[in-house]
Amino acid sequence: MEITVANISKSYNTVTALKDISFGVETGELFGLIGPDGAGKTTLFRILTTLLTPDNGVATVSGFDVVTNYKAIRNSVGYMPGRFSLYQDLTVEENLNFFATIFGTTIDANYDLVKDIYVQIEPFKNRRAGKLSGGMKQKLALSCALIHKPKVLFLDEPTTGVDPVSRKEFWDMLKRLQNKGMTILVSTPYMDEAALCDRIALIQDGRILEINTPKAITEHFPKPLYNIRANNMYLLITSLQKYQHTHSVFPFGEYVHYTDKRNTPDKTALSQYLKHLGLTEITIEKTKPTIEDSFMELAKK
């Protein structure tokens, strides 16, 4: 186990950020913390990176305790905070150089590690970091977090505010880093990114809802799920919410994801009910649940 978390709790004054959290991350694993804003992801990251101390519980990183042996952890991990935290008035190259220096290394020594990422921002190496686009900022931040060849990488919402193309590139890089043997703990509010992790923990209101592989989580979805579409989205949702057999209704792109209280729902009756309310072009078809569906279902309980 590279990271262990046992019964960690943390409160700020009256607000409880984490309630009795436990999980473990294997060496070389790409582990995702999936949850909405305010779920407690950043607090957990800060505890693991020794920036905060937990009220209760024990956590270790690479075998070092986060409270008593914090110096050893600070020497060996890479951390990329959720907010862009590089020097905006320093250029791309100066930032990277600075972080290499304070970790007692040089860009050249670990260039192969950051090469894949850094080549993309290298054309702008004389530009101030504050003037980079969102995606490039994140690539620079990742380069800076990587430059000292950390054993464990903590990435707090690295793709928030980044365009879809850059997001995909970013995840490709994480995969490559994982192949080099790095343990990566990443958090994201985007459910579609969850499928790219080896294992994920769904987290909400400071509690872990479930920990498993993304595949297993979707397979555990308890009910048949339906894509429903009609000519009027708003009316469709409100109608379904009023339907007596409805278990859950969530808008999902151009569809509505629907589950029924019964195990085998009556599609024709539902279609009739919707027609009766004035909806046309109704399609109802079975679909596979996504992580988002699982999350919504788990969060309902």
Partner: peptide, 12 residues
């Protein structure tokens, strides 16, 4: 600017 966070999680 949040850079203190990174400086803290460093060998400095």
């Amino acid at each position: 600017q949040g850079t203190m966070e990174i400086l803290l999680v460093s060998p400095l």
